[in-house]
Structure formats: C-alpha cells, structure tokens
Nucleic acid binder design. Structure first.
Length: 288
DNA sequence: TCCCAGGACATAG
DNA sequence: CTATGTCATGGG
C-alpha cells in the first residue's frame, strides 16, 4: 500500500520516540508488532509503503496520517522553545496503538528505562506470544490477554519484569473481564476516561495519560515523566505559580502541572508533550 | 557502591 | 488528602 496523504512523517524519529517498543529496522524497513500482527513500513521519497501480516491493517491509521501535522505544529508553536522543538524534529508524529498492548507496555514502563521496557516486552512476547514468520523473518506477536492473565507470577518474572509481574497479571485479568471497554473510552471525556483507567492495578496518572494519548484518541493528554518535567522546568517555569522541583513528582504536583500544560497548549497538548520529550532527551544535559 | 530510569502501591499520619 | 518507604532490574 502506498500513500502520501498529509505528510510529513519522519519514521525513524517517530518509531524511536519512546511510544512503541517492539520495532526493529531491518534492511531499511521497519518491522513492528501491532497486537497480533506484524507490520512492515518504509518511506520512499515521501510515499509511505506499508504492509502487514497476517491481517491487512491500515498504515495511515497507525501513523495518524489523519492528523494534519502542519496545522497541529502551528497550533502548539506558541513560544520559542516549542518552535525550536518542532522545527528541529520535523515529521515527528504520535502513533495509534492497540489499546491492550499499549496498556501493558506502559505498565511495564514504570520506573525503568526504554532499553529495559524493550527487553521486558520482547521477553513477554517470546514466552507468551505466537510465532509468526514474515519476509523470511521470525517474530512473536504480542501476548493475548488470556495468556498473561493465566501466567504464573514466576513465569512472568522470568521476563525481567520484577515487581511489575503482579500488575501485569492483574491488569490482564481486569481487561479480559471486560470491565474496561476501550471502544467506549475512546468516546468518553478525558478526565473520566483517565480515572477509569486508574482503577486498574498498576495504572497511575502517568501511565493512564500514556494509554489515553497513544491508544485512546485523547490528544490533550500530557504524560509527565522525568524528561518532560525537566523540559517544563526549563522552558515553562514562568507558567507555574511555584518553583518546580522536577525530582519530586508527587501526585498533586503531577495534577497541577499537567492541567497547566493542557490549558496552555490546548487540545493538541499531547503532541506538544511528545515534541518536548524528544527535545529534552537530546537537548537537556544528561546528568552522569 | 550508588544513582538513575516514560511510577505506582501500601501504609501511616 | 498528603507524605514516606518500598518495590526488581540492569546500565552508567
């Protein structure tokens, strides 16, 4: 499938921006795990080339080409910091993930690094997913909820998930039971949907925001991790009433901050957040 | 050896 | 409602 609708799209930047964790670049093509499918993507002079297996998936949907990025970039470019973040990362987009995979991924993302998240999710898929071969390459699909819900804590721990094992198992049980309806949440107001997700064990404010932004169409969600907190502290302290200690993110501080930033950036605050996140990781001095 | 990483939970006040 | 300690794991 080929498309050039509403580009720009920078594949490398987007896929490697801490949203998805089961993608690999092989021979110039990106291969990713999208639920029970393997997807294959590449760019050929402004055309998105896309295929998937075993099901036929819409690549424009995964890369949110239905979002008019130029308009969004213009809307969030309200200050010099964001203008710089946008202009130096042209084509960075949000992705549209499978909600259940996104949810489990960000439960694994608590208090760890991206390299570790990749390791955990790769191990979980290898142990509990289904083997698929595509383009002569071997993959494992993302585990079905049933497998994770029935897995023993011990076997989950073999995937280096540590204390997250019980969260993964319990969350898989909860979602499988149907008490959380993703399709319904897509049409529920941000605040209400956020609260509902936080009823799931292992999901707090930040993880909930990530799930909402990356898989449930809540583009106003503004997840705050340590990097975004540093960026806000560096570039947006003038918007805050009190001085921000970005090392101490209490639930109260998180609530105030994210509310402030949603208010400032508006309905596309999530895009602003993603630009800030990547910008901060490259720009702000990493403490050794 | 200590600190950090896309934090959240349990408990006590 | 708020503050503090605890939770595995691996890299730097």
């Amino acid at each position: 499938m080929l498309t050039n609708n509403l580009l720009p799209l920078n594949l490398d930047l987007t896929i490697d921006s801490g949203q998805v964790f089961l993608w690999h670049k092989i021979n110039g093509h990106w291969y990713g795990i999208h639920g029970s499918n393997v997807v294959k993507v590449s760019m050929n002079n402004n055309f998105l080339e896309f295929s998937s297996y075993p099901e036929n998936i819409n690549g424009e949907s995964i890369f949110r080409l239905d979002d008019d990025l130029n308009t969004i970039a213009r809307k969030i470019s309200k200050d010099s910091a964001m203008r710089d973040a946008v202009s130096t990362q042209n084509g960075l987009r949000l992705m549209r993930q499978e909600p259940y995979q996104c949810l489990l991924s960000f439960i694994c993302a608590t208090n760890t690094s991206i390299a570790m998240i990749r390791r955990m999710l790769t191990a979980l898929s290898a142990r509990f997913g289904r083997r698929v071969e595509y383009d002569g390459l071997k993959f494992h699909t993302f585990p079905e909820l049933k497998r994770l819900a029935e897995a023993s804590i011990n076997d989950l721990c073999k995937c280096s998930v540590g204390f997250r094992a019980r969260f993964i198992k319990q969350a898989a049980k909860t979602i499988k039971s149907g008490s959380v309806d993703f399709e319904n949440l897509k049409h529920t107001k941000y605040e209400e949907a956020k609260e509902e997700l936080m009823d799931v064990l292992g999901i707090g404010q930040k993880v909930s925001d990530c799930i909402l932004l990356f898989s449930l169409e809540k583009l106003e969600a503004f997840p705050i991790d340590i990097w975004v907190a540093r960026a806000v502290s560096s570039y947006y302290s003038h918007l805050l009433d009190e001085k921000l200690d970005e090392t101490k993110m209490t639930p109260k501080t998180y609530r105030l901050l994210s509310e402030k930033m949603r208010e400032y950036f508006g309905s596309y605050a999530g895009y602003a957040q993603q630009y800030l996140y990547c910008y901060a990781r490259n720009k702000i001095v990493k403490r050794s």
